[in-house]
């Protein structure tokens, strides 16, 4: 459905897909969180993100159809989210580092877009809160117990390879990408330093390590995620829910 549309008309689609996919992943935590207070916190973030996705899809309705068509009827290769957000939850440290990496990107990205994009202006307040959530937890896990430190470092090392993709320019979005990456590196570096964690040095830009989610190339877990997310909707073509 996206193949025939000029890319500039779809400039915001990656923002919506990032938000939808991460929201879905956070939704998988329901009933599994390490403490009840965190059930509420993770759900709040998931709901914010879902709201952001719906706002993006609403504006794309003329080009792509209803929000549900966009979410439930596109094929995997039509999704434009980065690979970072589709990564499975793993343990709580894995989820928190994913949150830190993503929110440290999404927050300044929305800030850059806010003047020209109303939906980014609304989201920027939410994402600042998400970033703080991730930061507070990274500090506690990194500088908590030996076990929590090891788990968090492991998560950072594993997710690092998906961070290079974040700064590949998205056509049609007026963002100073290099500046964005500098901001991101400063934020993550600062939080890691205070948490006693080491910023990974592994590859994130090489041809074989760089993610290509923005071009519709995803990792294996994403297909399974979509299968679960879309199955009911697709089982009843044309039905209203």
């Amino acid at each position: 459905m996206t193949a025939t549309v000029p890319p500039r008309a779809l400039a915001t689609l990656p923002l919506g897909d990032d938000a939808l996919v991460l929201s879905h992943r956070l939704g998988e935590w329901a009933g599994h969180a390490p403490v009840l207070e965190e059930e509420v916190a993770l759900a709040n973030i998931a709901l914010d993100l879902l709201g952001q996705a719906r706002a993006v899809y609403a504006e794309l309705a003329e080009v792509l159809g209803s929000e549900d068509e966009i979410a439930f009827l596109r094929e995997e290769r039509e999704f434009r989210n980065c690979q970072l957000v589709e990564q499975p939850n793993g343990d709580f440290a894995h989820t928190i580092v994913r949150q830190l990496f993503f929110s440290s990107y999404q927050q300044p990205l929305h800030a850059h877009l806010a003047p020209s994009l109303p939906l980014a202006a609304k989201a920027v307040r939410e994402t600042a809160y998400h970033r703080d959530h991730a930061e507070q937890w990274t500090l506690r896990l990194g500088d908590g117990t030996e076990e929590s430190h090891a788990r968090t470092q492991r998560a950072a090392d594993a997710l690092w390879r998906y961070t290079g993709e974040l700064f590949q320019p998205i056509e049609g979005l007026d963002v100073p990408w290099e500046e964005l990456e500098e901001e991101w590196s400063a934020t993550v570096g600062d939080v890691f330093a205070r948490a006693g964690l080491t910023v990974p040095t592994g590859p994130r830009r090489d041809a074989w390590s760089a993610g290509a989610g923005r071009e519709g190339v995803h990792t294996e877990p994403f297909g399974r995620m979509l299968a679960e997310m879309q199955h009911l909707h697709r089982s009843h073509p044309g039905a209203t829910w």
Partner: peptide
């Protein structure tokens, strides 16, 4: 059913409801 909710509207409602239960 959160991960299988058949529309985004229903997904949001269900997530908010399950969250309320934790609350």
């Amino acid at each position: 059913w959160i991960t299988r909710a058949p529309s985004l509207r229903r997904k949001a409602i269900l997530m908010a409801k399950v969250q309320d239960e934790a609350g």
